[in-house]
């Protein structure tokens, strides 16, 4: 690089340099694969908690009432720990590379979405047993959005925005689209494993998508270095 002032005619080149430097810094700050792998791990670990923590009461007419206590006890602390671990990893890796990190808004969003999901689930757990009702399908879409798996997607959207990471944005859109689909009892899970099994497909799909995303982003990051 020269140390002389650049004439005004070189404005285009200067702007192009600015863009490419900014892009390089953003790439060096990213640790997307760690975030996705941590969230995948938390998701897979949550499956037995949901399975064994679920209270199922089947009536003589064949219908069953259930309460997903495992989700309520496991996910809030697990998500908060996961976001803390992700933020710590980002700061540590960026510092080792000689950079600051821009992960704090993501961790804060993660914590806020965790509080929101917990509040809604506690409210539902208190209200619904005494007011059983059938909800229209759009309410169920909102319900799936406010599940831990939906909230993970919302926080990932914030991470994609912070990192100006288009591949992560595309990944998150696909992830959220899958998570909002009615997967309860899909692939015959309810037939094979009963009420508990009905909730397996969403969790297995969420964990698998996050795991595959983590592996993919890890490979892409290694190729770039």
């Amino acid at each position: 690089m020269t140390t002389d002032s650049v004439p005004a005619g070189d404005a285009r080149r200067l702007l192009s340099d600015v863009r490419s430097l900014a892009h390089r810094v953003r790439q060096d700050q990213r640790l997307t694969w760690v975030a996705l792998l941590v969230l995948a791990g938390v998701t897979f670990l949550g499956i037995p908690f949901d399975w064994f923590g679920m209270k199922v009461h089947c009536l003589s007419d064949g219908s069953c009432e259930f309460a997903r206590r495992g989700v309520l006890y496991y996910w809030p602390p697990a998500l908060l720990l996961a976001y803390a671990a992700i933020a710590y990893s980002y700061v540590r890796a960026a510092r080792a590379r000689g950079l600051g990190a821009r992960v704090l808004p993501y961790a804060v969003t993660g914590a806020v979405t965790t509080v929101v999901f917990t509040a809604l689930w506690v409210a539902a757990a208190l209200y619904l047993p005494s007011h059983p009702q059938a909800f229209p399908s759009w309410v169920m879409v909102v319900d799936r959005l406010f599940s831990p798996w939906g909230m993970i997607g919302i926080a990932l959207l914030v991470l994609a925005r912070l990192e100006r990471n288009l591949p992560l944005l595309l990944f998150t859109v696909v992830y959220l689209a899958v998570m909002l689909m009615p997967l309860e009892g899909a692939f015959g899970s309810e037939t094979h494993w009963g009420t508990r099994g009905a909730f397996l497909p969403q969790q297995i799909l969420a964990g698998t998508l996050l795991l595959l995303g983590g592996i993919g982003f890890r490979r892409a990051a290694r190729r770039q270095r």
Partner: peptide, 19 residues
């Protein structure tokens, strides 16, 4: 408006803090 200094400012802005 000097290429290197503009580069330093750009990196410092994007990185928040740079070594």
């Amino acid at each position: 408006h000097q290429r290197v200094r503009l580069g330093i400012l750009t990196i410092a802005h994007e990185a928040r803090r740079v070594e």
